[in-house]
Design a protein around this nucleic acid. Sequence first.
DNA 1: CGAGAAGGTTCGTGGTACAAACTAATTAGT
DNA 2: ACTAATTAGTTTGTACCACGAACCTTCTCG
Lengths: 144, 144
Amino acid sequence: MTDTDLVDALAQLSFLVQNALAEIGAQHDLSLVQVRLLGVLRDHEPTMQELGRHLGLDKSSISGLVDRAQRRGLVTRTASPVDRRVTHVSITETGQRLATEGAAVFAEHISSLVAGLSAADRRTLTRLAHQVISNGSRVSEEHD
Amino acid sequence: MTDTDLVDALAQLSFLVQNALAEIGAQHDLSLVQVRLLGVLRDHEPTMQELGRHLGLDKSSISGLVDRAQRRGLVTRTASPVDRRVTHVSITETGQRLATEGAAVFAEHISSLVAGLSAADRRTLTRLAHQVISNGSRVSEEHD
DNA sequence: CGAGAAGGTTCGTGGTACAAACTAATTAGT
DNA sequence: ACTAATTAGTTTGTACCACGAACCTTCTCG
């Protein structure tokens, strides 16, 4: 296997990005999952179960996660009109503001990381990352 | 800011890689931090505090982490001969085996993710990732 | 209508992270 | 040399996070 270097680089890179995300969250007392939660809720109003699939978590984990976020006024639960078993989760004004701010800080942080790359290199990196990602979703769909 | 796409791609990519890592760990009942712990210990025999710096964790967190890993026979503590306050952490035979196996599975997984890329693209991705990484370590060193 | 399936919650267990208080060992200051 | 301040690690208390199992309610299907 000649790709050890690439494997290593991707691993390190992933930690770099995740640490940035965790750090930014921490500045507002948010854990990584809570950051992800708000991130998802920015453009969706999913049911608990959809949320679970999205985040790869058990439904019981979602219950607790939403509980805590709700206690802090970041999200709300709303009953579905069509099926009284399901509850939708939506982001509040406060949560929205936090998410937007955080996203901006994150974007800035990442931008500083790739600041040393030429515009062409950045485009290339974007393209390659997308390729890997689409490859990844294909792979994970095989396990349904 | 024209780099939203790149920011997004890197974020998604990082989750892809971390999920792979977490999944592989989970198959041996290892959390992500424990995977990282074994990863570090593969080629170092650090003190508790060095470990903490390496993983970005508080020393009390390290105590617990090493406690649990030690309870499972993955690592051992050894007293330093030169300074009786410090304890070094080293990986056991069992831990070593686990780490090596896991690393192989991980490499395989990542390789499958980048399988769609040409050899030239893989080389380019490696180069760009390294550039971002070195940029990232530089940035984080500014906060010492 | 009754049996079973599906969406969520609750509970119990254990890992994770931090801060604060504490012990033991080393280093500095005088 | 002897005390004072530092440093390495541990312990304790609190909160979060994740899971599985048991449970309740609400559909759905036969």
